[in-house]
Simulated assay, not measured.
Amino acid sequence: MYSPIPVLNELKDLYDSTRDYLADGFELHDYDDKGRFPHELDDPAFLSRLIPFAQANGSGSTYAIWRADDEPELARSPIVVFGDEGGEHVVARDFTDFLRLLGFDAEITVGHESAYFYREEDDDHSGSHDRFVEWLRERGLTPAGDPDGVVAAAQEAHGERFRAWITPFYEKIGWA
């Protein structure tokens, strides 16, 4: 079993059965591989609340589940992104919203001030995009038509709380 999240295990099965990207820049990696975070961020209280699971873009940003509370069902926890050049943001309220963002099929851009998805109208879709969209539909989901709206809703629901939680860890290592 890849993870304790059934839909993530299903996504992993789909991912493993394809040769092309399901979504631009998205690659699953070992579940809960804490080595995806910079070595300075080794505080057990920090690491215990974050579960990295995927590469977010071609430059090495990382998606992680943020255990904002003791919700036993991890699929209901927010998804955050850590930029390879800095910046960390809540991007999805839960795993369902995250899957819909992937369906938009664009690499996420992560900066210090924001994270967003952008694709041109005439951009080609990833090689396995159609298969992924069908997989979403089988689960009653559709790709996000407005990824900025999904990210904004996640920020509204969890952004301030995430910033308040992460800031002391960054201050401790001199990053704030």
Results as ranks from 00 to 15, higher is better:
D43K: 09
T109W: 07
D97E: 15
A92S: 10
G35I: 08
F82I: 11
I166G: 00
Q155M: 12
N57H: 04
D122K: 12
S59P: 01
D97T: 10
Y118R: 02
H29E: 05
L74W: 00
G58M: 12
I65D: 02
G60V: 11
S61E: 01
E107D: 13
S128D: 14
V91P: 13
I108G: 00
H129R: 12
H112A: 13
S114W: 08
A176M: 11
D148I: 05
A75I: 08
G83T: 01
A64E: 02
Y63A: 00
D16A: 09
F162I: 07
S114H: 13
D24R: 02
L102R: 03
Y116E: 15
D69S: 14
R36P: 03
E73P: 00
F37C: 05
D122C: 06
E10V: 06
A68N: 14
L41F: 13
F98C: 05
D33L: 13
A115Y: 01
A92H: 04
R119H: 03
D84R: 10
V81I: 09
L22I: 07
L74S: 00
A153H: 02
V7R: 08
V110H: 00
E120A: 15
A23T: 13
M1G: 07
R161T: 15
G140K: 03
F26K: 04
G159M: 03
H125L: 08
S3H: 07
D24I: 06
D124N: 06
E120M: 10
W175F: 11
E113C: 09
D84K: 10
F46K: 05
D105F: 01
L136R: 00
R131Y: 00
